[in-house]
Design a binder for these strands. Sequence first.
DNA 1: ATGTTAAAAGAGTCTTTTGTCTTAATATGA
DNA 2: TCATATTAAGACAAAAGACTCTTTTAACAT
Lengths: 144, 144
Amino acid sequence: MALISKSCEYGLRAALFIAARGDNGFVPIHDISRDLGISFHFLTKILQKLTQNGLLKSYRGPSGGIALARKAHDISLLEIVRAIEEHDIFSTCVLGLKNCGDSTPCPLHQHWARERTRIESSFGSMTLDKLSKPIANGTLRLTD
Amino acid sequence: MALISKSCEYGLRAALFIAARGDNGFVPIHDISRDLGISFHFLTKILQKLTQNGLLKSYRGPSGGIALARKAHDISLLEIVRAIEEHDIFSTCVLGLKNCGDSTPCPLHQHWARERTRIESSFGSMTLDKLSKPIANGTLRLTD
DNA sequence: ATGTTAAAAGAGTCTTTTGTCTTAATATGA
DNA sequence: TCATATTAAGACAAAAGACTCTTTTAACAT
């Protein structure tokens, strides 16, 4: 089991890939799919979610593709995760209890609530521009 | 997407349930299943994994059931998670990259490696006896 | 207009996880 | 020995997640 779904992994990697290109032109999904090794049609649907949520913008036809809808410093990884994941991992009980919360906690609530808040703020503070610079450098990578 | 699988949630809840009973007798799986609202046959297989890993012990026939194989203070939640989850969530890359590590990190590695280590040690320090006491009290609960 | 490029949309398949059902194996007690 | 209680094991079904394929829509170029 992973923290986030495959779809979410792909969405994050694609967004970082687009941000790392630097220019403001539209990147064809086919290019992203090829370079990151992600199924084209599957990736298309994930990116659709991100455009529908106002994080990316798309353009059809020749020299069309996908681009960031806002400045890279204004898009956090948290927004991307929230747009793709249907269940909010940052507010669900680690034992799966529906009514778990501060008032009626499960045995792990006190511990897990702290951790998940920390992770949430970590994802919230990571923006596309911060992470994409070392990718453009070649210091960090998005593929195996 | 959740941090741990349903199987793992059930395994943790069942282990805490057994520990909270306090006595050393065998608890029939049917009782656990009924009280926690978990499918009997499904739970049986999860508990089998825990007995095979030496965390629980089982006994067949009348007045048989499941019991802790060791003292409650000697069983951590981390051991239970490790026995049930096939992939180790505490060592996998958050972006799903196979070779992500300190030498060839993904863009999130530095951040996520810290978080997952913290969670791992948190699960490692939580033992069944620590968490089961407030359950026996009725302060904390294992069901909705 | 027509053809080409590219995203959007939707149906369908495969795999994994979750859950159910049936049969065996083991222990107890009358 | 026989009925009963209980875990073990394995086949099967349902649901969700991951992925594929086909058709449609939009934009551009000639």
